[in-house]
């Protein structure tokens, strides 16, 4: 068996959000086909970590490096990282007045020429949201499903998924989990990072690596068994 290709290497990364360092000294190494599940309490820096990896405006890497597919992408913009194959599904996307969901998905599909909008819409059961303004009056589950739809259209090499199970009913979690599974099938490298404050969605996505995050740092990393510990003893004791 050959060695799996390394997709993401993060070295001693610290991320500043509008003048405040929120994430400190993070190291991650992920190879093709791996799913990393980062779990931690609210406010532990999970969203900042993902946004920093995505190059989101306002989230600045103040130290360390991000190497993606062998290229140092530290300090590059969000759209550049998408063009390289990194894409983020947000925990709570903004409402966008006037922009219909159908148009957003069409813009994404047109720009990147990948993915079948109708197939994605069917998979995530979001057909009834197509003519509504993006995000306006959507439930938590609807937001997650539409976010995941954009990811499925982008078919990233590395998918970053922020809190897919927060504020969501069980049916939606199952749909979202199905979407993540489909994403990992479609993705050229099948590499995914999921962050959550619970272990709930891990039952469906079956991570190969788990890290516990607290106060802006990754305190402990290990295999899936780490999640059982977290669920049994809580974040503090595990950390």
């Amino acid at each position: 068996m050959g060695t799996a290709t390394e997709v993401l290497r993060v070295e001693n990364l610290s991320i500043d959000v509008y003048g405040k360092v929120v994430v400190r000294g993070v190291d991650i190494a992920l190879s093709e086909g791996e799913i990393l599940y980062v779990v931690g309490p609210n406010g532990s820096g999970k969203t900042t970590l993902l946004r920093g990896l995505a190059g989101y405006p306002g989230y600045r890497e103040v130290s360390g490096r991000v190497i993606f597919s062998g290229e140092d992408i530290t300090g590059t913009s969000a759209d550049y990282r998408v063009s390289k194959g990194i894409a983020l599904a947000h925990q709570i996307p903004p409402k966008i007045s006037g922009l219909r969901t159908r148009d957003l998905l069409a813009y994404v599909a047109r720009k990147f020429g990948s993915g079948d909008v109708e197939e994605v819409v069917k998979l995530l059961d979001i057909g009834y949201l197509m003519d509504r303004e993006f995000g306006r009056g959507f439930s938590g589950g609807e937001l997650k499903r539409v976010e995941l739809a954009t990811l499925l259209l982008l078919r990233p090499k590395l998918a970053l998924i922020d809190e897919p199970d927060s504020g969501v009913d069980v049916d939606s979690v199952m749909l979202v989990a199905e979407g993540i599974r489909r994403l990992s099938e479609l993705s050229p490298y099948r590499t995914v990072v999921v962050v959550s404050h619970t272990a709930f969605v891990a039952r469906y996505v079956r991570p190969s690596k788990v890290c516990v995050m607290s106060s802006g740092t990754l305190l402990r990393c290990g295999g899936p068994e780490l999640l059982d510990e977290v669920m049994r003893y809580g974040f503090k004791r595990v950390a």
């Binding site: 946004r51 969000a78 966008i96 006037g98 922009l99």
Partner: peptide
């Protein structure tokens, strides 16, 4: 910022938002 995280340049994002508006 949201649209840039979906792969659009700043200029493209502004165009999409104005057209949507």
């Amino acid at each position: 910022a949201y649209l840039m995280s979906k792969g659009f340049s700043r200029e493209e994002a502004e165009g999409i938002l104005i057209r949507g508006f």
